[in-house]
Amino acid sequence: MVGPVLLLAVVATTSPQALTSGTVAPQAVCRSIGLDPVRIWRVQQVAGRWQLAHWRGRIDEAATVRVTLPPNAEVRLSPTVVAVRGKTSNGGIDVTLSGTPAAATLDAYVSYELEVNVDASLTPAIEEIATEGPVGVRCEVAQD
């Protein structure tokens, strides 16, 4: 009984940076289940910060809509787990991805009106990232 209690204490005190070390793959590409056209989101680390990118129908780098997740975002990507949790203090970005690569749920809220006050380079297009509630997704986790 002592073992599980100690393990819980270690997990509960792990920092977001520690959660990302060791189990993080370079990116995860997640495709919606049952939506037409298919929606695609990519979680990727760029210059030390996690980004969430979005497309409709197919990946077209020229038409990418992306937003940078807050610095305290918790990200775990592996062959068995996809987990992202990032929320800005003003509530303009609130992203949760949880599950396994084969069956996960993505819930993304993005508000241009709230986030443009923090990052003036944003455009209203960032709101296309939003899922309007939880969406079932299948993810491919890239491994290096």
Results as ranks from 00 to 15, higher is better:
residue 17 Q to S: 11
residue 17 Q to I: 05
residue 18 A to Y: 01
residue 20 T to P: 03
residue 21 S to I: 10
residue 22 G to Y: 07
residue 23 T to N: 14
residue 23 T to E: 12
residue 23 T to F: 13
residue 24 V to E: 08
residue 27 Q to W: 07
residue 29 V to H: 05
residue 29 V to A: 04
residue 29 V to K: 08
residue 30 C to N: 02
residue 30 C to S: 07
residue 31 R to I: 12
residue 33 I to T: 08
residue 34 G to L: 06
residue 34 G to R: 01
residue 34 G to A: 05
residue 37 P to C: 02
residue 37 P to M: 04
residue 38 V to N: 00
residue 38 V to I: 12
residue 39 R to P: 00
residue 41 W to A: 01
residue 41 W to M: 03
residue 42 R to P: 01
residue 43 V to T: 10
residue 44 Q to L: 12
residue 45 Q to N: 13
residue 46 V to A: 07
residue 47 A to M: 14
residue 48 G to S: 06
residue 49 R to Q: 15
residue 49 R to D: 15
residue 49 R to E: 15
residue 50 W to G: 02
residue 54 H to W: 15
residue 54 H to P: 03
residue 54 H to S: 14
residue 55 W to K: 06
residue 57 G to P: 07
residue 57 G to W: 10
residue 57 G to M: 12
residue 57 G to T: 08
residue 58 R to L: 15
residue 60 D to K: 02
residue 60 D to Q: 02
residue 61 E to N: 09
residue 63 A to P: 01
residue 64 T to P: 00
residue 64 T to K: 15
residue 65 V to K: 00
residue 67 V to R: 02
residue 68 T to A: 08
residue 70 P to L: 09
residue 70 P to K: 13
residue 71 P to L: 11
residue 71 P to V: 09
residue 73 A to H: 06
residue 73 A to W: 04
residue 74 E to R: 12
residue 75 V to E: 05
residue 75 V to Q: 05
residue 76 R to Y: 06
residue 76 R to Q: 10
residue 77 L to W: 03
residue 79 P to D: 11
residue 79 P to V: 01
residue 80 T to M: 05
residue 80 T to P: 00
residue 82 V to L: 01
residue 82 V to T: 06
